[in-house]
Structures are given as C-alpha cells and as structure tokens.
Write a protein that binds this DNA or RNA. Sequence first.
DNA 1: CGCCAATTTGAGTCCCATCAATATTTGTGG
DNA 2: CCACAAATATTGATGGGACTCAAATTGGCG
Lengths: 288, 288
Amino acid sequence: MSNISTLSQSTRFADISTMSDSAWRQQGSLWSNLRQVCDLLAIPAPATADQEDTVFQHVRFKAGQRIHRIGQAFDTLYIVNSGFLKTVHIDEYGNEQVLSFPMKGDLLGIDGIHKQHYASEAIALSDCDMILVPYKTFTALGRVHVELEQAMFNVMSREIVREQMMISMLSALSAEAKVARFLTNLGERFNQMGYSGRSFNLRMTRQEIGSYLGLTLETVSRTLSALNELGLISVEQREINLIDPVALKTLRRLPPAKARIKVSEKVTALVNKNLLPQWNGELAAALN
Amino acid sequence: MSNISTLSQSTRFADISTMSDSAWRQQGSLWSNLRQVCDLLAIPAPATADQEDTVFQHVRFKAGQRIHRIGQAFDTLYIVNSGFLKTVHIDEYGNEQVLSFPMKGDLLGIDGIHKQHYASEAIALSDCDMILVPYKTFTALGRVHVELEQAMFNVMSREIVREQMMISMLSALSAEAKVARFLTNLGERFNQMGYSGRSFNLRMTRQEIGSYLGLTLETVSRTLSALNELGLISVEQREINLIDPVALKTLRRLPPAKARIKVSEKVTALVNKNLLPQWNGELAAALN
DNA sequence: CGCCAATTTGAGTCCCATCAATATTTGTGG
DNA sequence: CCACAAATATTGATGGGACTCAAATTGGCG
C-alpha cells in the first residue's frame, strides 16, 4: 500500500519535475556527479568532469519545510533539482518580504557567502528535491577546474543583474504591469524547463505574489481579475492561461487610466454591435 | 587666476576625497599595487601581495563623464579611489533608474561579467579617480592567490545582499522612511570613509535620489522639508545635517501585522531571551 | 461536515504622482 | 563682473491608484 502511494506521488510530479535521469541511489539517498550538477545549472561542465569522483547528495524537503533560515551558519549551497520554493527576507519587525521563487536549476544560498550566515530564508512551496553543494567542496573544485570558478562568477553576476531588474520594476511599474510581467516571466521560466509557458499553475499565494511585487494581496487579486476581463489571461484560482503573452510583456505604466476605460468601452460597444468578433489583446495594443 | 580657482576647488574637495597616500605617479598617470587595491576594497591582502609586481592604472573622470555604458563590451572592473558616481539602468523607453551611488572603495562593473557586456551605466557625479582592474588580470590573480578569489565571492555576495535590502526597502517603506534611511545610510558610508556621518553634502539631485528610492523629485523635496520641520534633520539645498540619526533610522511605516511570521518569530524571541542557545535543525523539525 | 486558509469583491481613504508656478542656483558668454 | 539661460529646488493644488478595512465565497483538509 505504501508502495502505491509513493508511486502515485512520483507520478503526479513527473510532468513538472523530472528527475535527473542518471542520478543514482545509494544508501537510500540520491546522488549526482559533477557533470549532472553542471547540466542542471546550465553551465559548461569541465572537460575532465567525468573523471571527477566527487558526488553531491540530494535531500528531499516537504512543502512548507525550511531549507535554511536567516542567521543560520552558512556552509552549503543548494541547487533545485525539482520542486518550487520561495526565498524571503524578514525585517526586524517580523515582516516577510519575498525575494524570489526558485525552481529547477536555480542556485540557493549565495547570499550566505558574505557573512558566512544566510541572509535570507528558503522555504519549499512544494515537495522539493535539492542537491547539496558544500561550499568548501565547491571552492576546492573551483581551484581544480577554472571553468567552474568562472561559471560561479557568471551565476552571481546574473543574480545581481536579476535583482537590478527587480529594483527597476518595483519602482517604475504600475500594479498591472508588475503582475503582467510576473506572469510572463514565470511562463518563460516554465518554457526553459520544457513545460508550457502559456498554461501553468501558480505555486504561491496571492499574498506571496504581492510581497514579491510590492503590492497587497487584494491588489494582486484585483489585477488578475482585470487582466482576465481584458482577455489577456484567463485565471481561475491558481490556474493561469496566458492568452496574449506579447501584450502582457509590453504592458507598461498604463498612462491615463481614463483612456484605458474609454478604449475598452469603445471596443465593448463595437462588440455589442457585432462589428467585432471578440475582444483580444492584439486589439488592445492596436488601439492604445 | 585660474590657479586660484583650481586650488579653491581642490581644497573644497580635499575633506572628502583623499587620494591613496602611497599611490605613485609614472608617465603622468597614477598607479597602485595589489596591496593598495586590497586595502581600498577593505579585503585582506594576500600575504605575498607585496612581492606581486602587478600594478593597476588609475584613470580620472570629470563630473558628468561616463565610466562605462550599457551594452558596452565588458573587460574591466573599476574601483573608486575618490569621487562620487551613480550607476543607472535604462529601460527600453529611455527611462533612467538609479541603482547605486558608488563612492570610495566601491567596486563597479560586476554586472558585466554575466554576459560580457555591462548591464548598467556608471556616471561620475564629481571628478573621480578610478582604478582599472582588467577582468583577465583579476581572474589570473585569483588563481595565484586563493584569498583573492574568496574575497571576490564575498564582495559579490555582499552586493547581492545589498540589493536584497534595497528591494525590501522599495516595496515596504513609506516615502518618509525611504528618505530617512537613505540619509542615514549615506551618513554611515561617510563615517566608514572617515568623514562626518552627521554633516555632509549630497552629491546627487533630488531627481536622482527619487529615482533611486522609487519616488518623484517633488516627494523627495517635500519629505526633506518635512524631516526638517520635525527637527530630525536640517537641510538647505544639498547641505544635510542629521540631528537625530537614531530616530531617522527607525522611522518607518508600520505595515499590516498580517504579513508576520509565526514559528520563527517565536524562536527568535526565545533565542533573544537566551532560552535557546541557537537555532538548529532539530528545533526546526520539532516546530514545523 | 465543519473549520480554516485563500480568494474575490466592494467601499472608503490616503499617500504619492502629476501638473503648475515660483524661487534659487549654476553655468556660460559678453 | 554682470546678465541671461538652463538646471535645480521648493511649494501648492488636485486627482488617482493602491492600501485598508470589511464581508462574502470558495476550496482544501482533517
């Protein structure tokens, strides 16, 4: 019986979180070698990687569990092999700020290097399979394989750029644009993972999305409803369908809100007169 | 006559931008060695640094000049030896977003590593003396001195943490709190540089402060006036005096108590009361 | 089935952006 | 050194977008 439930669970996740095919079990726990880790991170593996006998242990976390917490002594980096997480920063008053939603192939824990203590907290939003990379092991490897050191600089630089974009977005965009971009970004990441970038389920609550985007949960909910009304997406609970990804991605600070309303009124009138088949995002773009 | 004006200007800046004493001139341009560079970055210099014959060239920029542009091929990192700058990101519509205000000891250009092209633009706000560190030279040094590689990871990790704090601030704080923290942060940095952290001149416009904080220039101006009225600072044009730094630093809008954490809050409280030695995984399991 | 968390939706409020006018400073050339 | 233009800063009036408070609905789970 327990076999069956285990099987059904792994089947349930098979569509979204494929395990590294060649990862292997040993003593009841999963292990990956250097090449597999590099593939997962989408960085070029050292030519001599296959001769490397270093292996990396996998650890499973259940939804809700913490991978590491703020202030905890730093000693290992984590790579997401499957599952979804959030990283949060908690200020001195206990307010939670979501910083990222890591998923397959993402690296966690970089912020712990600075003070040898994690600066953020990582929490599993679904059951997760994480690969442990002890920092000491990593730096030792970096000394042997120069490409690895280089790759690490690249990954960290990319993270810095990502956060710069985030800062830009937070201070420049309207709520609608923030939510729209959030959805298209999610879609692109799903795409890169080999899944549908147009149709997916949100793994996080409106609250968490709002925290991530600097909005309240009510505003997120209202904005999703509005994008739904506009025909740019369809949304029901956590099921998202991107109907017009292009319009979503280019949606900006929507200048005068009045103009928007006028346009949609115009279109609605036309639709009502059967002069237009239906409202769609392309039309919105054309009319704006 | 022109001598006098030049002299008075350099005198005016002397209090805030002291040149590395031991930097030396050669062929009309200034050079620093590895130890001097490490000191400037506040990272431990390799024990063998003095035997290192690598030297780093200085380059001077006048106020308003660009150090590097977005999209420009990346090949060198810059360290601020003296002067003040801003780094900006420019979106596809030409809108400028200020990302940081680097000053003495800060490292520029990290964001270029990722794609081998700078992702941001650095502009001198005052006359600047910058040390050039060719990326290739740097990585070569990192291979020789392990401490350097380590220090680089530290610096990049610190930058990531800094941006995380920025994101938190942007999405959680009110305009007053943003401006107040901006001022105290500036003060702390001046302090670290050995200058007064309570009395200083702003090197940037209200516009640039606003861009940095996600506010309009009018709001920045109004907020400064308000903090002045409250007696927390005195401000006249760009002259700032922090009268009550403590109150400034703790000034905040109290967000809804909803977004507060539960378990970790309890644990933190216990740790603070010395009822728990420290956080550990066993506790995590017990409380989750 | 009942409880609790998550979500949706509405109504009212307020903070901050926007538009606008003025004042002050900086820079430049005569 | 002064005059003029351009940039910067201050202050006011107004409106809107997002927050806050509140209630109802849905969905998940024991």
